[in-house]
Design a protein around this nucleic acid. Structure first.
Length: 811
DNA sequence: CATGGTGGCATTTTT
DNA sequence: TGCCACCATG
């Protein structure tokens, strides 16, 4: 849903008459698209046709000015946005769109480094470390340096290093700048960390940018090459670029300066990642004769929604003055709701969704937005209960699974024997008698001989039988990797390492789903097979794709009216950060409370608060037609077990909501019945008298409250048990890919309430989300520790399930 | 020396 | 839940 104006002006596949390019664009849009050479900054407000301008600009360069497609680089923030852009350009340009270089900053960095990393002392086949790997490296360093982890936690170093990289500060420079004991220590750790990565032939995320810039700066022949190649550069979401990214672009854009950047300072929400608004506010200083174009006409939202958005954002000091306007009318009132707690809030959202659905609104036209991922729990639970199809964006769950990471670590180690993190991950996984002591001696040997752990362990193997066996295993895997097909090879790893067999031997229900995940991985491997590529190449490609796919890469398809979609009709749930660039007819903006939005971590700092405000602005401007603002009166911050803990007590309405004109708000539900307002009201909530709620939401809520505990009950098992389908994974790994966590509920199991413990007795037929149909044999214990023995149709022996987690349903 | 079980703790946002 | 530190056991 990146699309703004979804008109289908150009249906001709091949190309179009160039004069048509400007048709359907408003004056400023035409200005931007038709501009000649030189730097141009397009300040594009939310919903003002930004993507349209970008794509038409590219088309204009090619069709009207004869620029070859491979002379153009367009940089976006997510793979999805890149794919979206390519898709649209395909409509404008046909085949030629394939030759454009459209990618994210990180992919562009990776591509350059794959060809040139050797100039920096890395092997070109370096691996990309994820956050976990990075922390593993840091942990070792902190141990080596005898740093007190309580005083200086790993995360503080991770953050410091990340910050340095965002600002293109290399270790040496960091050392020079250090002005305190702490920053000096950080610089030391940073230096050792980089050396460790270099030894492991690995780069972390930040390195993909830092090292790309280094290679360009330090090796003129490389820089010249890219400058010769790239004549036009376009940058999307420019307000979210940080210093390294800016340097990267600046280097490539010289000397032509044909730089076309599009952004909106009001939507800068990645300050924590080093994005600096000054990049956009000061662009004109760096490029003196910049043409500035403002797009202020909004084609997305109603007047009421735009007014609310403006009321929120205008309080920010650090912004370029502008005000969105629409030629459309005011539209509906904004609807508000206060829930007793987050569950009631969720139930409200759910029931409104169902209501709208019966009125013909598609699920895919509705979206639920929130500040923190933790808020999904209640929402998810409520949606599952009501059988509303949904998908949650964010979090690469499949590849984050332990068993998947374990198997991938074997692959990594084979591709890059210097990958010490992968080594440490697999050396005793599954347990094979190589404990901390043995690893310690391997590490010492590695240091002594300056060899990777894997090589050092060959020496240790002379005196340690377990290590010897491990080495032999790796050798066997290596040989197999040369001869077997990739998919089969993955299966071979699972077998040979005994990882699979050991899981199979476990009675634990969780083991079963892990096996299924490994089978999925194997199937996925089969789809990666390619007759012209060696297994080594396939493995590298496989790993690269996995490490670069991000949680914001949304499913393709829901791009508005002009692209027919076969995508499932589901409600979208995502954080405000992930929502940027998208639009939905109906938006539920949840958790409008002090401490959540704005988040309490930002409360004491004005810069942070301004960013929270922008976040709220982004949320509001996602809505095309209908906007809901909801909050909860109580919120269990740390959900656990069966307590309805409400740490933090009563919650106060967000200051952002207070900025919205009350006349545009209509209370729904509780406030309506009690005369309280969204802004001021604390409606009287009582557990004893359901009628107090005064509307239909009370029913669900009351039913609910009797069946505590609720946290982690309905949903967590779905997310961990439901295997990701092959098709999903395949999509995931294609360049255009989409990352999503999609929940598919088994048909029979669909929507039924979890069976109460009292209902379970020997002989009762039940359903389990992943084991299927079965019959209760016995029930032992009570309360949260109760266990149920079930004989499932598809299993020989009966299974012992913990009642609290099993989610059994009466058959 | 390796392993498995137990109890305590944590949660902003992400390329 | 899931991760980690700690401890008892083989």
């Amino acid at each position: 849903m990146i699309g703004e104006q979804s008109t289908m002006l150009f249906s001709d596949e091949r190309s179009m008459a160039s004069s048509d390019l400007l048709k359907g664009l408003n004056d400023p849009q035409q200005d931007a698209v038709g501009y000649g050479d030189g730097p141009i900054l397009v300040l594009a407000g939310a919903g003002s046709g930004k993507t349209r301008v970008l794509t038409h600009r590219v088309a204009q360069l090619i069709l009207e000015r004869g620029v070859p497609a491979d002379r153009i680089l367009a940089v976006t923030f997510t793979n999805k946005a890149a794919e979206e852009m390519r898709g649209r350009l395909r409509q404008l340009l046909g085949e030629r769109a394939e030759r454009l270089w459209i990618s994210t900053f990180h992919s562009a960095g990776l591509r350059i480094l794959r060809h040139n990393a050797s100039r920096l002392g890395y092997g070109n086949q370096f691996v990309v470390y994820d956050d976990q790997d990075s922390k593993g490296v840091l942990k070792q360093i902190i141990k080596d340096l005898n740093i007190n982890e309580d005083k200086y936690p790993i995360d503080s170093f991770a953050r410091a290093i990340d910050r340095a990289k965002n600002n293109f500060i290399l270790p040496q420079e960091a050392g020079k700048r250090a002005s305190s004991i702490e920053s000096d220590l950080q610089a030391q750790v940073y230096d050792r960390y980089q050396k460790a990565l270099l030894e492991a032939n690995a780069m972390d995320f930040g390195d993909l940018l830092v090292n790309a810039v280094r290679v360009l700066k330090e090796h003129t022949e490389v820089l010249e090459y890219y400058r010769r190649t790239l004549h036009y550069i376009l940058v999307d979401e420019f307000q979210d670029t940080n210093k390294v990214q800016y340097l990267f672009i600046r280097l490539l854009a010289e000397p032509r300066r044909n730089l076309f950047v599009v952004g909106d300072d009001d939507q800068s929400i990645y300050g924590f990642r080093g994005a600096t608004i000054s990049n956009i506010l000061e662009f004109e200083k760096d490029y003196p004769n910049t043409r500035v174009v403002k797009l202020e006409q909004n084609y997305r939202s109603t007047g009421t929604i735009l007014n609310a958005a403006h009321a929120v954002i205008e309080k920010n000091k650090a912004r370029k003055a502008k005000k969105l306007w629409t030629a459309g009318d005011d539209g509906e009132q904004i609807r508000t709701f206060i829930g007793y707690d987050e569950n009631m809030e969720a139930d409200f959202v759910t029931s409104e969704i169902k209501r709208l659905a019966t009125q013909g609104v598609k699920y895919s036209e509705m979206s639920i937005l929130y500040r923190t991922n933790a808020q999904t729990r209640a929402l998810e639970e409520s949606l599952v209960r009501a059988k509303v199809p949904y998908k949650i964006f964010g979090g690469l769950k499949f590849f984050d699974r332990k068993e998947v990471k374990d198997m991938l670590a074997y692959v990594r180690l084979l591709v890059n024997p210097a990958d010490n993190q992968a080594f440490q991950r697999v050396v005793n996984t599954p347990p094979r008698g190589i404990g901390a002591q043995a690893v310690q001696s391997i590490a010492e040997e590695a240091r002594r001989s300056s060899m990777p752990f894997l090589h050092a362990s060959v020496t240790i193997a002379e005196t340690n039988k377990s290590v010897k066996k491990f080495i032999e295993l790796m050798g066997e895997l290596k040989q197999a990797s040369q001869t077997m097909k990739f998919g089969a090879f993955l299966g071979f790893i699972v077998e040979k390492t005994e990882y699979g067999p050991r899981l199979a031997a476990m009675k634990d229900p969780a083991a079963q789903s892990r096996i299924e995940n490994l089978q999925e991985l194997e199937s996925l491997g089969r789809t990666m097979e390619h007759p012209e590529l060696s297994n080594d190449e396939i493995m590298k490609d496989f790993l690269d794709r996995i490490s670069l796919t991000s949680s914001a890469d949304m499913p393709a398809g829901e791009t508005g009216a002009n692209v027919p979609t076969e995508k499932p009709d589901t409600v979208s749930l995502m954080t405000l950060h992930l929502a940027k660039g998208l639009e939905f007819p109906v938006v539920f903006l949840t958790g409008l409370e002090e401490g959540l939005l704005p988040h309490y971590r930002s409360l004491d700092d004005t810069v942070g608060l301004e960013e929270e405000r922008r976040l709220c602005y982004v949320g509001i401007t996602r809505a095309m037609r209908t906007l809901y603002l909801t909050r909860a009166h109580n919120r269990g911050m740390f959900a656990s077990g069966g307590n309805s803990s409400t740490a933090g007590g009563a919650r106060i309405v967000s200051r952002f909501a207070k900025d919205v004109d009350p006349k545009s708000l209509t209370a729904v539900g509780v406030e309506r019945s009690q005369g309280a307002t969204f802004i001021e009201g604390y409606p009287r909530f009582s557990f004893d008298d359901g009628d107090d709620y005064g509307d239909e939401y009370a029913t669900t809520f009351n039913r609910r409250k009797k069946s505590y505990p609720r946290y982690g009950e309905e949903t967590s098992e779905y997310t961990s048990k439901t295997p990701v389908s092959l098709d999903q994974l395949r999509t995931l790994l294609m360049p255009a890919d989409s990352i999503k966590k999609e929940i598919e509920i088994p048909a029979e199991y669909h929507g039924r309430p979890t069976a109460a413990l009292e209902q379970l007795a020997p002989g009762v037929a039940v359903l389990h989300p992943s084991f299927g149909r079965g019959c209760v044999e016995d029930v032992k214990g009570s309360g949260s520790s109760a266990t149920v023995f079930v004989r499932f149709e598809s299993f020989e022996e009966s299974k012992k399930l913990v009642y609290r987690f099993a989610k059994l349903v009466l058959a």
